Simulated scan of single mutants.
Amino acid sequence: MEKPNGGAAYWRATLGLLTTVLVLWFVVSYGFGILLRPILDGIHLGGYPLGFWFAQQGSIYAFLVLIFWYAARMNKLDREHDVHED
C-alpha cells in the first residue's frame, strides 16, 4: 500500500542520494586531483605523489566504489518506499 505523498518522498530521497554521490565524486576527482594537489603531493603512495595518484587512479577507484554504494543504497530506498522489483 502506497503512503500519501509517497512518490514525492521517494523522489526527494533519490535526489538527495544523487546529490551526495555527485558531491563526493567532485571532491575526489576535482578537489583531490586538482585543487588540493599541491598539499597532497607531500604524501607519497607507491612512489608517486598522492595528488598525482588521485588525478590518475584514485578518482577512478572512488567512482567504482560510488557506483556500488549507490546501487546498494538505491535498493534500500526502493524497499523503504515499496517500489522494489522482486
Rank of each mutant, 00 (worst) to 15 (best):
M1A: 14
M1R: 14
E2C: 05
E2R: 06
E2V: 11
E2Y: 02
K3Y: 14
K3R: 15
P4L: 04
N5G: 12
G6H: 07
G6N: 09
G6L: 12
G6Y: 08
A8Y: 11
A8R: 14
A8D: 08
A9R: 09
Y10Q: 04
Y10S: 05
W11F: 14
W11L: 07
W11H: 13
W11R: 12
R12A: 12
R12L: 13
A13R: 03
A13F: 04
T14N: 05
T14L: 08
L15K: 08
G16A: 13
L17E: 06
L18M: 07
T19A: 11
T19G: 15
V21H: 02
L24T: 04
W25V: 10
F26T: 05
V28Y: 08
V28P: 02
V28L: 05
Y30T: 02
Y30Q: 02
F32T: 03
F32N: 01
G33K: 01
G33A: 04
I34L: 01
L36F: 02
L36W: 01
L36K: 02
P38C: 00
L40K: 00
L40Q: 03
D41R: 05
G42Q: 04
G42L: 07
I43G: 06
H44G: 03
H44I: 03
H44F: 07
L45M: 10
G46K: 02
G46Y: 06
Y48V: 10
P49K: 01
P49W: 01
L50A: 02
L50S: 07
G51Y: 00
G51A: 05
F52D: 07
W53P: 02
W53S: 01
F54R: 09
A55T: 09
Q56I: 14
Q57N: 15
S59F: 02
A62D: 00
A62H: 07
L64Y: 07
L66T: 04
L66W: 00
I67P: 03
W69H: 13
A71E: 06
A72N: 11
A72V: 12
R73A: 10
R73V: 06
M74T: 14
M74L: 13
K76D: 07
D78P: 11
E80W: 05
E80K: 03
H81N: 04
D82K: 02
V83Y: 09
V83K: 06
V83N: 10
H84F: 09
D86S: 05
D86C: 10
D86T: 14
